[in-house]
Simulated assay, not measured.
Amino acid sequence: MPAEVEARLEALAKATERTKTFYAREAILEHLDDLEDLYLAEQRLIDIRAGRSRTHTLEEVERDVGLAD
Rank of each mutant, 00 (worst) to 15 (best):
A11Y: 00
A24N: 14
A13F: 05
L35I: 04
D33W: 05
E59T: 02
Q43H: 12
E10S: 09
I28W: 08
R52H: 10
G51K: 12
E4W: 04
A41N: 11
D69Q: 05
D69L: 04
G51N: 10
E4S: 06
H31L: 06
L35A: 15
Y39R: 15
Q43I: 05
I46V: 11
L12H: 11
E42A: 12
R18E: 08
A7L: 10
A11H: 05
A15G: 09
E42D: 05
G51R: 08
E60D: 07
L40W: 02
E62M: 09
G66P: 06
T21A: 14
V65D: 01
K14M: 06
P2S: 04
Y39G: 07
H31M: 12
E10Y: 05
A68M: 05
T55W: 11
L45H: 05
R52C: 03
A15Q: 10
R63M: 04
R44V: 09
L35S: 14
E42F: 01
L58E: 07
E10G: 04
T16A: 10
L40H: 03
Y39V: 12
L40R: 09
G66E: 00
L58W: 07
D69F: 01
E10R: 14
E62Q: 08
D37P: 03
K20F: 00
E26A: 15
A41G: 05
H31I: 07
L40V: 07
R54E: 12
V65Y: 02
E6T: 04
Y23M: 03
F22D: 11
E36S: 08
D37G: 06
A41I: 02
L9E: 03
K20I: 14
A68K: 04
E62P: 00
E59W: 03
E26F: 15
A41L: 09
L67H: 13
E60K: 01
R63A: 07
I28M: 14
P2C: 02
T55P: 04
E36K: 10
L9P: 02
E30H: 11
S53I: 00
A50E: 11
Y23W: 15
K14H: 07
E17L: 09
Q43R: 15
F22R: 03
R8E: 09
S53H: 09
P2W: 01
T16L: 11
R54D: 05
P2A: 12
A41E: 13
R52E: 10
K14C: 01
T55N: 09
R49Y: 08
V5S: 01
E36A: 13
L35E: 15
Q43W: 11
T19V: 06
T19D: 04
T16G: 02
L45P: 00
R44Q: 07
L35C: 10
E59N: 02
F22I: 01
H31Y: 13
V65M: 04
D33Y: 08
I46P: 00
D47C: 10
V5D: 00
E59H: 06
